[in-house]
């Protein structure tokens, strides 16, 4: 049975499991047994909503005064105060409290209905990522390798970048008459411009005397372990692990899929901005890591009046489907627009 057939068969059993039908092989199939346990797990959305609700500042700390011992001792009735005022709370309830509360709530509702309060509304455009950006200068720039030479790689300039690397750069050519001669390239966007000269080598090396492929191990040049240049492990230049140049994250471009927000609760409006009806767009620059979490959040376009902080607080809670390169999740730098509107 091929993999797809196994997946189809499993799914038909899962479907029966979800519909509560008999005949599901939960006892004999560990995957289905696992599925049966997963069904009763709480939804992540509930977990995160409850957390927000608990930490909302408007719910005053200590609003309920019963201690643990008191809660335990009071038992059943201690769980919720009784409207009738006969509950076993710490202080005797007063009927007038209910009337005062009712009246103040009614007044508040009337104020809102009369339009005195401005309703806030924030819109978030998680899809407005900077996909128009071209391939990065700061990619996860690759690293190089050498041929175990005892001498540090020679100083020089890297060859040009190409979308495909047919031959890695080498300073000391071990096979001077190859059957199929091709130019050496580094893997990366062809529009990356680095200094060029006749001497291939590592820009940061201190060896300016002796030609050497360096102490790495990959058949190219450098002290790393990939077919690039530098101390990293990839086919690019620098200390990273991939193509391109540098050590930073990718940006959306050819071959790099942008991350997508899958859970994006709206930001709050700051009191200060609401008071003066301040509106606009905060642009945040951030890195979505391979686990789908926002890292290194920076304000790229500020709106002020506390809205930048509110935007950051909200985006910290967001979850993304991470960006991918060659189908694998990678860290990707993106910009996110958080739109604050009052109407």
């Amino acid at each position: 049975m091929n993999r797809q057939a196994i997946a189809d068969e499993l799914d038909s059993q899962v479907e029966m499991l979800l519909r509560g039908r008999d005949g599901v092989r939960t006892a004999s199939d560990p995957l289905l047994k696992l599925g049966a346990e997963l069904i009763v797990l709480p939804s992540p959305e509930f977990r995160s909503r409850l957390k927000d609700e608990l930490l909302e500042p408007s719910r005053g700390f200590g609003s309920a005064t019963a201690s643990f011992e008191q809660v335990s001792a009071s038992g059943l009735e201690g769980i919720a105060p009784l409207l009738g005022g006969k509950g076993p709370s710490l202080f005797p309830a007063d009927h007038r409290s209910f009337l005062v509360s009712f009246a103040s709530h009614a007044a508040l509702i009337a104020l809102i209905a009369s339009g005195i309060f401005v309703v806030r509304n924030t819109t978030v455009k998680p899809t407005s990522l900077t996909s128009e950006l071209t391939y990065p200068l700061a990619g996860q720039g690759g690293g190089g390798s050498g041929d175990h030479s005892a001498v540090q790689v020679s100083r020089g300039t890297p060859p040009k970048f190409s979308d495909q690397q047919l031959a890695p750069p080498a300073i000391v050519v071990r096979n001077p008459e190859p059957k199929l001669a091709v130019d050496a390239h580094l893997l990366g966007p062809p529009d990356i411009k680095l200094p060029q000269s006749n001497n291939i080598g590592d820009l940061v090396s201190s060896n300016i005397v002796m030609p050497s492929n360096g102490s790495g191990a990959g058949g190219a040049a450098g002290d790393g372990s990939g077919p690039g240049l530098g101390s990293g492990k990839g086919p690019g230049v620098g200390s990273g692990n991939n193509g391109g140049y540098g050590g930073g994250p990718f940006r959306p471009s050819t071959g790099v899929m942008a991350p997508r927000a899958i859970y994006n609760p709206e930001p709050e409006y700051s009191d200060e901005a609401r008071r003066v009806k301040h509106q606009g767009v905060v642009v945040l620059s951030l890195i979505v890591d391979p686990q789908g979490q926002a890292r290194n959040i920076r304000v790229a376009r500020s709106l002020g009046m506390g809205l930048d902080e509110k935007a950051i607080d909200a985006v910290k809670k967001w979850r993304f489907a991470p960006g991918t390169k060659d189908g694998l999740p990678v860290a990707v730098q993106v910009n996110v627009e958080v739109n604050f509107r009052l109407y």
Binding site: L50, E53, L54, F61, G62, F68, I79
Partner: peptide, 16 residues
């Protein structure tokens, strides 16, 4: 009920 538990816990945490 879970929400109720955490709300009560937070409300009486000061006395813990």
């Amino acid at each position: 009920l879970t929400a109720e538990v955490f709300h009560q816990a937070l409300a009486s945490l000061e006395t813990f």
